[in-house]
Design a binder for these strands. Sequence first.
RNA 1: UCCUCGGUAGCUCAAUGGUAGAGCAUCCGGCUGUUAACCGGAGGGUUGUAGGUUCAAGUCCUACCCGGGGAGCCA
Length: 436
Amino acid sequence: MHEEEGMQQVYLSRIAGHVGKSVTIKGWLQNRRAGGKVQFLLVRDGTGEIQVVVSAADVGQDVVEMVDHLGQESSIVVTGEVKEDKRAPGGYEMTAASIEVVQNAEGYPITPKEHKSPFLLDHRHLWLRSSRQRAILKIRAEVIRALRDFFDSRDFTLLDAPILSGAACEGTTTLFETDYFGNKAYLTQSGQLYQEAGIGAFGKVYCFGPTFRAEKSKTRRHLMEFWMLEPEVAYADLDDIMVLAEDMVASVVARVLETRQKELAVLERDTAMLEKVTTPFPRITYSEAVEHLRTGGLDIEWGKDFGGDEETILAKRFDKPVMVTRYPSALKAFYMSRDPEDEKLALCVDMLAPEGYGEIVGGSQRETSLEELEQRIAEHGLPKDAFQWYLDLRRYGSVPHSGYGIGLERTVSWICGIRHLREAIPFPRLMNRLYP
RNA sequence: UCCUCGGUAGCUCAAUGGUAGAGCAUCCGGCUGUUAACCGGAGGGUUGUAGGUUCAAGUCCUACCCGGGGAGCCA
């Protein structure tokens, strides 16, 4: 019960406060460097790591030999004195007085040497334990917390959108189909339409949950299942949500820089790039972007959507995220407002992350006219009946409103500086991978 | 769906058409301050699958399977 007794578990994140005392830690054997009469154990408990010194002089040769046979990732409980020592990684170490083996793990598949991604993904349930994966997922958790704090502190109401729906939201991408008591149902690709319902009740809302795309995409920028946060704001126009989006991204980056320096260091992230992410972000129109790409030597037609190459070239012009506005409306979803100054354009925005990480935010001002929406639903060949509830929102107190979605894994990948989206989610769902 | 690269030991990779090998992991031995510890030894293989060419195929040819990267699509 008291620290002096050395029996209660101390978490390694707090170990610095226990120098000179005897404590008990409970964790896993991450690595071992063995001598004949002394063993150096690297023990991890989920909150930190520490080197444990097991010496024959302290615990006897029997214990040293027992420890010599412990496999990587064995679960152990160690009691001993905490010391400061410059030779130890992290600056602290523990001299073991006793060791309890909870389980001796034999043949742990992930060794301290190199592995390739198919093998690591097959062992994702174990790969999570590695220092790099822990750093990424710690930052993911912090990004989520920062996002929710951002919206909660601005009087947004969390309004969860359904995962199962009876019709395609946007009619643009392939959906996962499932059986719903004999009827077809689809896994959601966006909670947006439901957020548009939410503004009538709460004014400012957001949802945050998984979304699903059944596209056969095999690139490092795609997952079949990914998380998206979608705010929607009543009486907001495109400019309003652009300010909201840049404030949001800047505050999330600032939070990670403030609280997760250790993890960024593990990832060897160049934080100078992140320090530059302050508002305002640069803004250019789609038409300006096309002009820029042309002067850069790219043969791109006005009216064509940007691919990965185009996005990367555009993003490289700036050292902050850039917001590209007013794409041709033909490229965009049916619910987006047209630009009153040019009916060919949609009042929309894509935010491209720097360093080639692609689109992290996509949003728009929404169409408010009932007649216009009915016509577009017909043009897109969408089932009219399924959208009656959505059209009700334009019948009863329709207001100008705008919103966007931010892709969590792309944002986390960019902040972490990692190459592939699959490391930014605990259990990635990829085209050929549903295990573990 | 298309383009492209690949599949050899548990892992990461070698092997001019001519006896399948190394490092790590595992097991055994040595070492009282290691930093991906080190040193010595041992076990470990239907070379993705099925055909074909050849005196001889991991290697060359055909088909298929699986995977990586990319395109399209998107966050």
